[in-house]
Structures are given as C-alpha cells and as structure tokens.
Amino acid sequence: MGKNELSPEQQAYKEKIKPLQPTPPYFVNCLKAFLIGGLICAIGQGITNFYITFFNFTEKTAGNPTVATLILVASLLTGIGVYDKLGQFAGAGSIVPVTGFANAVTSAALEHKSEGLVLGVATNLFKLAGAVIVFGAVAAYIIGMIRYLFQMVL
C-alpha cells in the first residue's frame, strides 16, 4: 500500500461513508473566526490608542508595546487554561493574530516543563511556532527581493 495511492476498496469506502459523516460548519466557523479575530484586533487598536494617549508614543512606536501586551495577555490566558477553549470556538480567529503565536509558544513551554528547563522547555519552545518563524523569514526574504527588483527596474 503506497502513500496516497488508495486501492479501489479504500476509494469505495471513502465514498460510502461520506453521507454518514458530519459536514464541518464552514460558514459558522468563518463567522466565529471573523468576529473573534476582529475583536482581538480591535482590542489591539484600543491598546495602541491607550499607549499613544497616555504614554507619549507615536502611531509608529506604539506597535511594539501593543504586541508585547497582547503576547503577555495571551500567555496568561494560556496558563490559566482559557486560550485553548477560545481557540476551539474561534479557530483561525484566535490562531492567526499574534496572540495565537504566543499561545503556541507558551503551551509548548508548559507542556514540556516536566522534562526540565533545557531539554524540556527550551528545546520544545518553538516546536509549533518554529514553522511560523521559518516561513515568516523566508516569505519576508522573497517579498524583499521582489520589492528590490521592482525598485531597480522602475
């Protein structure tokens, strides 16, 4: 049995069970993701405004403390066992924002605490978030190169 090559019997089984399986509620999931994702971003905007109004930040410099605050809050929510429930409800809505990245790192750290600080926490910290960093860096490099080429041509 090779990978990805299903026998006729396996194909027939897949077809047969289709009507017996629940269909994922795509629309409701999208709506929840939109609402919670939007809410997280709105809270982020509120935090940005707060830093600009009360702490002399500009629109440009308020970004860093805003992200740091969101990461802190998401990590705390992960620690007290709330963020995984939010994630089950909101799906992409709570995974895509920076809070989802914080949750991926914090949950891995918590999970591997039992194997010690070095081989447990430090080794596994980016187990889930590592892919985001790798592809983030690769994508940034490619986009940067494209932009550089456009600048040379135009």
Partner: peptide, 10 residues
C-alpha cells in the same frame, strides 16, 4: 498538540 494549545478540532 500541547494540552493548552488553541487549535480547533473538528
């Protein structure tokens, strides 16, 4: 995934 990871399950 880690127990506290916020992934959505079907």
């Amino acid at each position: 995934y880690p127990t506290e990871y916020g992934g959505q399950k079907p």
